[in-house]
């Protein structure tokens, strides 16, 4: 039976690692930015505290629920034509980041909504009583107060994104997940299977530890 040489394994792992890293960073950053925005709008339009707007709230909320309820594999395929229009191709880490980001935005928007909702309403009321505008309340009160919880949210998001890169990889994105499935699973290359798994496990452990550390630090500052 064909067995991959160590040098070939390292070359492939190296290549796959950077593809995954690219997908991970691109999709995480995109979904943090867009997800924060969407989460903020959902939070702000939900009730009378800021800019209550039932139509906006329910349509955004329904849209997010829709994305979150479609299995990622199916969503991936649905989104391929859109990716093609957007980037011109459906192959490569950047193309894969599109579908990952869309799923991750929906996920992160909910996390942002939860983080903002957890900020003590009394503090918001006190700020309003001082004559602060909604903009200042968001900037000076809501986000600073939500930071530890937002950092935890970002950690959870990034780790989910890493999981998604494995699946998206199979549809042209490449990366560690793709390598593990094509070589490790289809060709019974135990070495590939173990090596990719170890890298992913370390990745998750290190990032979770880092996120926990930052969250804790921001709490006791």
């Amino acid at each position: 039976m064909y067995s991959m040489s160590w040098s070939e394994l390292f070359a492939r792992l190296n290549n796959a690692f950077f593809e995954t890293l690219l997908m991970w960073v691109t999709a995480s950053i995109l979904s943090i930015i867009v997800g924060t925005l969407v989460g903020l709008i959902i939070f702000a339009t939900r009730d009378g505290l800021f800019w209550k707007n039932k139509i906006l709230y329910y349509s955004l909320s329904a849209f997010i629920n829709t994305i979150r309820s479609v299995p990622f594999m199916i969503l991936l395929i649905f989104i391929l034509p859109f990716t093609k229009i957007l980037i011109g191709t459906t192959i490569g880490p950047f193309a894969a980041s599109v579908s990952i980001s869309i799923t991750a935005v929906a996920f992160f928007a909910r996390l942002v909504e939860i983080s903002l909702s957890d900020v003590d309403k009394g503090i918001i009321e006190a700020s309003k009583a001082l004559g602060a505008s909604n903009f200042i309340i968001f900037k000076e009160v809501l986000f600073p107060e939500a930071i530890p919880s937002l950092i935890r949210g970002i950690t959870v998001l990034s780790i989910s994104v890493l999981g998604l890169t494995a699946m998206a990889g199979m549809f042209g994105g490449g990366g560690l997940g793709d390598l593990a499935i094509r070589y490790g699973y289809y060709r019974y290359e135990i070495k590939v299977m173990v090596a990719t798994s170890v890298i992913l496990i370390l990745w998750v452990q290190l990032f979770q530890g880092f996120g926990d550390y930052l969250a804790k630090k921001s709490e006791n500052k």
Binding site: I123, E125, S127, A129, L130, I136, E140, E145
Partner: peptide, 30 residues
């Protein structure tokens, strides 16, 4: 509202700001 101060049972201070920052926020806000 800048002409009407208010204090609360649960104080409602901003946890992420110092004593100085909390008082300064009232003025920054306006």
């Amino acid at each position: 509202r800048t002409n009407i101060g208010m204090i609360f049972q649960q104080f409602n201070l901003i946890h992420s700001k110092t004593v100085y920052g909390n008082v300064a926020f009232a003025m920054k806000a306006v």
